[in-house]
Amino acid sequence: MISIRGLSKWYGAFQVLADCSTEVAKGEVVVVCGPSGSGKSTLIKCVNGLEPFEKGEILVDGISVGSPKTDLPKLRSRVGMVFQHFELFPHMTVTQNLTLAQVKVLGRTPAAAHEKAMALLDRVGLRAHADKFPGNLSGGQQQRVAIARALCMDPIAMLFDEPTSALDPEMINEVLDVMVELAQEGMTMMVVTHEMGFARRVAHRVIFMDEGKIVEDAPKEEFFGTPRSERAQQFLAKILHH
């Protein structure tokens, strides 16, 4: 579904990504982790072309992201993305947030878009908040709306960029619950997160990054059981001991 081959990216002279390669199969849940500054967010933003890259190739459902001939808006409309800071549109109601792209990009009728939005709000348990503005919702509720907004487009894969990092601890679970459910339904997911509990529960594979390189790319059991690299061992020891 998503294949990344020899991806390299520079900010000026600084190399943020160095020759990264991996594959995400249909229905697979891949967790990307690593210390901050390791390039994991940049990697995931390259997948839907939000960040340009200089070398290598990314194919999403067989379409090359880096090719100048690719209709990027169309490709992006098929790949959902959830951001660390939610990025709901604050000047629109929850419903308007959910229907905008359905109408403007997919060409659905307002009625059909509204129906879809309500169904997805039901699913994340926020139908009662349909007419509120994002600023009146808690962080956890905003992130669930953001997930619903991405799902409204019927994506073939979902990208999560540290979806729980900006949340208060008591709100993390309500968001993770939605993500777990999504994973169990067979959604193809690439998730940048430090939530190792989530990784243990639903991930198929874990990618560990450091200094722009993919240091470890292993099935979940292997990663948590016997990580090969020393760097990954240190990282796990640090975040699992508390």
Partner: peptide
Amino acid sequence: SAGYALGLN
């Protein structure tokens, strides 16, 4: 980015 990610040009 959020606008682009939804497929808006």
